[in-house]
Simulated assay, not measured.
Amino acid sequence: MTEPYRYTSLITCLTSLTRQIVRQTSEFSQGQIFVLPLLLSVLPGIDANDLKKTVITFQFLNAILMLITCVDCSSAVNTRNDLSEIEKEVCLSTSKFEDFISELFNRIFHMIDTLSTEMSDALIVTMNSKMEDHQIALELTSVISCIVQQCSKRIFHMIRKKITNFLATYCYSPKISKLLTGLIQAILKRDPVETLKYLLLQIYERIEKILNQSDILILNDDKGDPELIWCLKIFSELVCARGDTLIIYKTIILSIFHRCIHIIHKDSYEIMAQAAQNLLKSLSYVHPIDYRLTIENIEEPFIDFLPIRAWGQHIEYDKLNVKFHIPNEDEVDFACEFVEIFMYHELKILNENRTKMSNDERLRSLTLLHHITIGCLRMVPRIESEEKSLTK
């Protein structure tokens, strides 16, 4: 770690060899033994003052974690009698997954805290270029997504608890909001029911508390309230959940929109417009909902299936068994109700008050209409027209 150029070169090379390392083969059967030591050894590479090294470290972690399941298989040593000596050693080493993930999040949270202040050397160096920051956000989201999609329930609960506890005490900084929203996206994709249960109610209470203290001032304040902006940002990400899980919180969701959709502050109304688009997409789009490496049960007692034997293995095309979320009638009805309440109301305001509205109010209204239109695009029937033949 004291020689960053040497470290980045080595990690870049290792990244291209990850499948050979994690997969059981006759040519290199002991590769899996090195997986946990490698994962633990690269964690110091997550360094807020060297973003290039951090990106390369995340790329390496992503390359390995997309090929393995994060499950403690150590108990398989006592329940199975068909394990080779190498498999026994690998199973025992998987007991360190919780330590690895705990330390990974400690370093991620420390990096976020550092980047959110003006004291970070990396922030000063890259102020004129946001590309590196954007890349870190993408890589971080990918790493956490790989972990939560292919980990045991016990490890997921630990991750969810760490993220929700951090969000509850975090002070908003726009510089690193993408890093945190990436964490939310990851756990939301794995288990929207549990994530909404812990986060959406918490965010709703925080928003209500802020607005009840100074509702009129916030609505007309062009400077914005940092805590409210952050709560709305989280809310915008949470409504990306599967539509059937959002139906349960329909009253809460509509209440937040009713109270916050007329805020004049630019960042706030842009977030609310994006939230409207996200909600309508969640309620009307067909999308895959399972991203796991294997369809087998990866939980204990490992009698019928041993997760480490699936590490790095390819999947037959006809055995993919991709699962999709298809919107049901309740979701479509919710989307239509939302459009009727908010889109038609905004159109009415524009028609009746277009000469009386300020530029800020007009822009807020048009921004909301733009995002609602994009969000409900899949529900709009195709425009019928006559077929035209092209002639030379």
Rank of each mutant, 00 (worst) to 15 (best):
His110Lys: 15
Asn165His: 09
Leu200Lys: 10
Arg362Asp: 04
Leu51His: 02
Met272Tyr: 05
Arg292Glu: 12
Ile176Asp: 06
Thr54His: 00
Val143Lys: 00
Ser102Lys: 09
Lys88Trp: 01
Lys130Ala: 11
Ser173Cys: 10
Leu104Pro: 00
Leu138Arg: 14
Ile252Gln: 14
Leu179Val: 03
Tyr172Met: 06
Pro307Ile: 09
Thr15Gln: 15
Val339Lys: 08
Ile108Gln: 03
Pro226Gly: 07
Pro381Asn: 10
Ile21Gln: 06
Gly45Trp: 06
Glu118Pro: 05
Asn128Tyr: 10
Glu89Tyr: 01
Ile271Glu: 09
Leu293Asn: 07
Thr141Glu: 15
Ile264Leu: 12
Ala48Arg: 02
Asp215Gln: 12
Val22Arg: 00
Thr181Gln: 06
Lys88Gly: 05
Leu366Cys: 12
Tyr204Thr: 03
Tyr285Met: 13
Asp267Val: 08
Leu10Lys: 14
Val239Thr: 12
Met379Val: 02
Ala76Thr: 09
Glu387Val: 13
Pro288Lys: 04
Thr373His: 12
Leu363Cys: 11
Thr114Gly: 02
Phe257Tyr: 12
Val239Glu: 06
Leu201Gln: 13
Ile147Arg: 01
Lys52Tyr: 08
Thr25Gln: 05
Asp215Ser: 15
Phe97Arg: 07
Thr94Tyr: 03
Gln313Ile: 07
Leu138Glu: 12
Phe324Arg: 01
Ile216Ser: 14
Phe334Pro: 05
Ile374Leu: 15
Glu89Gly: 09
Ser152His: 01
Ala48Thr: 04
Ala275Leu: 04
Asn220His: 14
Leu10Thr: 15
Ile108Pro: 02
Leu104Gly: 01
Asn106Phe: 05
Glu331Lys: 06
Ile256Val: 15
Lys250Ile: 03
Ser255Met: 12
Ile247Asp: 07
Ser102Asp: 14
Val77Ala: 01
Phe105His: 04
Pro327Met: 01
Glu352Lys: 13
Met272Ile: 11
Phe235Trp: 06
Lys130His: 10
Leu390Glu: 09
Gly45Met: 04
Phe257Ile: 05
Val332Cys: 09
Glu337Val: 07
Leu167Lys: 01
Ile163Asp: 02
Leu217Arg: 15
Leu104Arg: 04
Leu363Pro: 08
Ser365Pro: 02
Leu188Pro: 03
Met119Thr: 13
Thr57Cys: 08
Glu227Trp: 01
Ala137Arg: 06
Val42Cys: 06
Ala168Val: 08
Thr69Ser: 13
Asp222Ala: 13
Leu228Tyr: 03
Glu132Asn: 13
Ile21His: 01
Leu211Val: 03
Ile108Ala: 00
Ser120Tyr: 04
Thr126Gln: 10
His345Lys: 15
Lys197His: 11
Cys13Glu: 15
Leu350Thr: 09
Ile207Phe: 05
Glu387Met: 06
Gly312Asp: 07
Arg154Val: 10
Leu115Ala: 07
Leu219Thr: 14
Leu377Tyr: 11
Val71Met: 01
Ile33His: 02
Thr355Glu: 14
Arg80Met: 07
Phe166Gly: 06
Met66Thr: 12
Ser84Met: 06
Ser214Gln: 15
Ala168Met: 02
Leu238Trp: 05
Val193Asn: 11
Pro381His: 00
Val143Ala: 08
Thr2Pro: 00
Glu89Cys: 05
Lys178Glu: 14
Glu384Gly: 00
